[in-house]
Design a protein around this nucleic acid. Structure first.
Lengths: 218, 218
DNA sequence: GCAGGCCGTGATAGCTTCTCACCCAAGCTT
DNA sequence: AAGCTTGGGTGAGAAGCTATCACGGCCTGC
């Protein structure tokens, strides 16, 4: 990120490598026990180090989790961007497919981004930039769809409250569709990953496809 | 619940009262610091007791949280039932309004029910009965709506996978609508309560109303 | 009135995050 | 090439947490 020289110093390389390994172990631990049970001590023991040694690399447990959240956002944005750039043009279905794949690949990672927030915690500034990047991909895909149906009252509301799009040229109906895309698919994924569909015998993937179809139809 | 005599013994009354006060303090603490930071020690100190005293009333921290989750489910079901029984017949809009009111009244309580699950934790048996009760209210309201639009492929899937409704007579399209009602409104509420709409200048209440309108329209 | 059971306490074990003082080695500078 | 600075690692320790145990004392039911 902030490189003074083209080649980093050995110390910086080593530091980056250790930081990466700490995050690696943290992800393994989170995937099995959840983020709330993440233990710096356990990570240090796994790496053959003593507990306080980790504090040379992350100022606190919250600092480590913040780094993980940041990486998760980045990973999601990359997955979405990859899906968006795969086809000839913006493709909402591809975006939806990528989102579901990313979520199912590591549910706890999804919950780290979209799950229960800790009341005191405030996300760092750059994550909002990444969410904006993801939102732009959704807006692009929605703007490319043919308009359908009459304008709803909420479309009119959005026409007056579109500062969050950052000068995106999409019409209000596309804004509405992008928001619905986000909230509906999140609702489905969130309940599925939390296990609220277990015991119900329908296929969540089929409902996901149905919800996407409804979104595309308008 | 399981009363052997009409009048409980003084000991049982005292025990129930202390248990209720513990849960009261726990709710206050959860509302401000979240469920993951709930501390039995802090509750005991607030009540002027020593730490281990609480273990006479709840076997463990998880046991207390389980009781809170159970109460939250019960509270949600009661709020839904109250809204459903207020009007002349089943009313999906009233149900949606009650759901949103219940969620906004205590966001952490909502997250306790629908938020990030703890990987090891398994909900007790009776909560599934309460979710079934809530689902029945939604199915009743959806069955009362006029059918609209052609049957989707997912409707056909639901016709073959409807064991989770427990012999509810609603047609597949109503099943689909009830599921969409649940997942879409949850998606909206979950993102709003988690603060993912802060910084965006549109009104979540208006989008909630728009999503409800779309649900009612078909 | 009395005995039994329940409630609360202090002590204790084991875990956690996190701070501090110290040591040592790697690397940059002269 | 030698020395000094910088930064990594360790052990000890404080403060907090959950949870268990043995021990007193009050309340309750008989």
């Amino acid at each position: 990120m902030a490189e003074t020289h083209a080649t980093t110093t050995p110390r910086e390389r080593y530091r980056a490598q250790v930081r990466a390994e700490i995050k690696e172990r943290a992800w393994e631990q989170i995937a099995t026990t959840g983020a709330s049970a993440l233990s710096l001590n356990a990570i240090a023991k796994q790496m053959g180090m003593s507990g306080p040694a980790l504090y040379r690399y992350f100022a606190s447990r919250d600092d480590l989790i913040t780094a993980l959240i940041r990486d998760a956002y980045r990973s999601l944005a990359d997955a979405c961007r990859l899906a968006a750039e795969a086809g000839p043009g913006p493709d909402l279905a591809a975006l939806a497919h990528a989102l579901r794949g990313w979520a199912l690949a590591d549910p706890q990672r999804y919950f780290l981004v979209y799950g229960t927030p800790v009341p005191g915690y405030h996300a760092p500034e750059d994550t909002t930039a990444i969410t904006h990047e993801i939102m732009t991909l959704m807006l692009d895909a929605c703007a490319a769809l043919p308009p359908s149906g009459p304008a709803s009252p909420f479309d009119a509301h959005l026409a007056d409250h579109r500062a969050w799009t950052g000068d995106h040229p999409a019409p209000p109906a596309a804004l509405h569709r992008a928001l619905s895309f986000w909230t509906r698919l999140h609702g489905l994924l969130s309940l599925e990953l939390a296990g609220h569909f277990t015991g119900m015998d329908f296929d969540p993937a089929e409902m996901y496809a149905a919800e996407l179809d409804a979104l595309l139809a308008g």
